[in-house]
Simulated scan of single mutants.
Amino acid sequence: MKTVLIIGIGAGDPEYLTVQAVNALNRADVFFLLDKGADKETLVDFRREICRRYIRDRDYRFVDAASPEWDRRSEAYRSTIDTLNSDKQALFERLIGEGMADGECGAFLVWGDPALYDSTIRIVEAIARNGASMDGRDGAPAIDYEVIPGITAPQALAAKHRVPLNRIGGSFAVTTGRRIAEEFPADLDSVVVMLDSKDAYRRYVDQDIDIYWGAYIGTPDEILIAGKLKDVAEEIARTRAEAREAHGWIMDTYLMRRNDPPEE
């Protein structure tokens, strides 16, 4: 039996790792690192750094592989993601099959928390459910797996801006740029937006909304902007474009909060 750990490593600061995550790091024999290209080398370097910082008195190794590519401009979003996850599943099966011996423990280090806008749990669960043997013995269970939670980008964003995510007694939603571009949920006053590649917040500049935006949260490159959306929207868009140009990638999150909350 092989054991796979899906470890949430937080949203950018090595000190965001929980005690449980540190203990999990110290169980792993092998860490699988997905290379997403030269622009995102810092994300791989971060994973290596937390291993160096937190693993004590044990040998471990890294297995690197190129992450499957996908067309982010595709209009057929769901089918594109299904294809991406299928490609990732084939890759994960190969990594687990070839990169681990029976009885060993391997780990995927997931940015933020594995349960929020990440497919690693789904992919590993599918491998385990299919029951395909990783060592060639028909009928042998492939793997067992565990999930270790991490600090999410919305949590880190709220802490950095020193604001709660919800009003007293109120609800909030976590959604995507694609969704918020369509509508602001009618029954909510607070929305956290992730994966917004097109500055969808600009749609709401004519409304009385506060925005709390952050990029590269927890890293030395962290950028924070907050204020009335109508006043800071263009500053965010400009800063975001400059940061993407400088780094080759951007990872940002924001909270929008109406000041005229919907009627109960």
Rank of each mutant, 00 (worst) to 15 (best):
Thr176Asp: 04
Val191Pro: 00
Ala173Ile: 05
Leu165Trp: 12
Val191His: 01
Asp210Ser: 14
Ser190Asp: 13
Tyr201Lys: 05
Asp187Val: 12
Asp199Met: 05
Ser171Met: 13
Val192Ile: 13
Asp187Tyr: 13
Ser171Glu: 13
Arg202His: 13
Ala181Tyr: 09
Ile211Met: 08
Pro164His: 08
Leu165Gly: 06
Gly177Cys: 08
Gly169Gln: 12
Pro164Ile: 03
Leu157Pro: 00
Asp208Pro: 10
Ile211Ala: 08
Gly170Ser: 13
Asp189Ile: 03
Gly170Cys: 06
Glu183Ser: 14
Val174Thr: 10
Tyr201Ser: 01
Tyr201Asp: 04
Ala200Leu: 00
Ala181Pro: 04
Gly170Leu: 07
Arg167Cys: 09
Tyr212Met: 09
Tyr204Gly: 01
Leu188Trp: 01
Ala158Leu: 15
Ala158Arg: 05
Asp208Met: 12
Gln207Tyr: 08
Lys160Asn: 06
His161Asn: 11
Arg162Asn: 14
Asp210Lys: 14
Val205Trp: 05
Tyr204Thr: 06
Pro154Ile: 02
Tyr212Phe: 15
Ile180His: 03
Asp196Thr: 01
Ala156Gly: 00
Val192Trp: 04
Glu183Asp: 13
Tyr204Gln: 06
Ala159Cys: 03
Phe184Leu: 12
Arg202Ala: 10
Asn166Tyr: 12
Pro164Ser: 13
Pro154Asp: 01
Ile211Arg: 07
Asp210His: 13
Ile209Phe: 15
Ala159Asn: 05
Ser171Ala: 14
Asp208Gly: 10
Glu183Gln: 13
Lys198Ser: 03
Asp189Cys: 13
Ile211Lys: 07
Thr176Val: 05
Val174Pro: 05
Gly170Ile: 03
Arg162Met: 12
Gln207Pro: 01
Ile180Asn: 01
Gln155Ile: 07
Gly169Lys: 11
Asp208Val: 13
Trp213Ser: 07
Glu183Asn: 14
Val205Ile: 15
Arg178Met: 02
Pro164Val: 10
Asp189His: 13
Tyr212Cys: 09
Leu165Pro: 06
Ala200Tyr: 01
Ser190Leu: 02
Leu157Asp: 02
Gly214Thr: 09
Asp210Leu: 15
Ala173Leu: 13
Pro154Thr: 06
Lys198Ile: 00
Pro154Trp: 03
Val193Gly: 00
Asp208Phe: 11
Thr176Met: 08
Lys198Gly: 00
Arg203Glu: 04
Ala158Lys: 08
Val192Ser: 00
Ala159Leu: 08
Tyr204Trp: 10
Val174Asn: 03
Ala181Cys: 03
Leu188Cys: 02
Leu188Val: 06
Val205Met: 12
Phe172Arg: 08
Thr175Trp: 08
Asp206Leu: 09
Val205Glu: 13
Ile168Lys: 11
Thr176Ser: 15
Gly169Ile: 10
Phe172Pro: 05
Gln207Asn: 09
His161Ile: 08
Val205Pro: 06
Pro185Asp: 00
Arg203Ser: 07
Pro164Gln: 11
Ala158Glu: 01
Arg162Tyr: 02
Phe184Ile: 04
Asp187Thr: 15
Ile168Asn: 12
Ala156Leu: 07
Ala156Asn: 00
Gln155Lys: 01
Arg202Trp: 01
Pro185Thr: 02
Asp210Tyr: 12
Arg178Gly: 00
Ile168Cys: 10
Ile180Thr: 03
Ile211Pro: 03
Gln207Trp: 04
Arg203Val: 07
Ile180Arg: 04
Met194Phe: 10
Glu183Phe: 12
Asp196Asn: 02
Arg202Ile: 09
Gly177Ser: 10
Tyr212Thr: 06
Asp208Arg: 15
Met194Gly: 05
Ser190Met: 06
Leu188Lys: 08
Lys160Val: 03
